[in-house]
Design a protein around this nucleic acid. Structure first.
Lengths: 109, 109
DNA sequence: TTGACATATTCCTATATCGGAATGTATTGT
DNA sequence: ACAATACATTCCGATATAGGAATATGTCAA
């Protein structure tokens, strides 16, 4: 078999650096495609395709305004990702504490 | 061109569901490959390959113990992911607040 | 209706996997 | 040294992109 489809979930969608850039850019406020193209210096078809993926997994919302399409990041859809990563928080805190303890032991000697 | 290499960063590495399962499993304590194979019901070569990817991006640590290789999740490497997703927290909180406000307005009428 | 503008989609190609099967390598026990 | 155990790697085939170029679609303005 081959790899899982990118459109399957948020994890795959944000694996692409360009799509993360787009999400960052659209977090503050909605923007038309043309502005994304200019701001991020990407080809228009490329932006449209990435937006399509982001839209399919619900990471962005769209609405039409005349001939423009206004996109904005749907932060809600990023929560599961944050939540998953967050389950490891206690572990890295614990790891950091051990590093700190060792440093203090060394200091004591 | 084609897609970015999976081994390039943590985002790509965790895009694969099986690798997330492995990370979850190895978070609590280190385990030999064989136990991962049994616990997650995956083929041994498959597990080894996923571990290789995780190791290349620093998401797991390894040490040898006799003929076993003991792997454990390096939670530290997940922090950047958590941090990135966390930058959107204020937005989803804001969105939720608006939803709540609308509900209350409706209630008032 | 026609033309211009803003986006989306399609077609094509090179490449990056993922899984399965087979094989290679390292370490231990006898 | 040799067999057994525990993993890792390689080779293969099917599929999923990402990007570029060209084209299609939708909307507004005159």
């Amino acid at each position: 078999m081959a790899r899982a489809a990118t459109t399957s979930d948020a994890f795959n969608a944000v694996a692409e650096p360009r799509r993360r850039e787009i999400l960052n850019y659209l977090a503050l406020q909605e923007r038309p495609v043309g502005e994304i193209v200019d701001a991020l210096e990407m080809e228009q078809p490329s932006v449209s395709k990435h937006l399509r993926v982001l839209r399919d997994v619900g990471l962005v919302h769209v609405r039409r305004d005349g001939r423009q399409m206004l996109y904005r990041t749907n932060a809600e859809a990023i929560r599961p990702l944050h939540a998953w990563a967050g389950t490891f928080e206690r572990y890295w805190k614990h790891q950091l504490m051990r590093v700190k303890e060792r440093a203090e032991e060394k200091q004591a000697r």
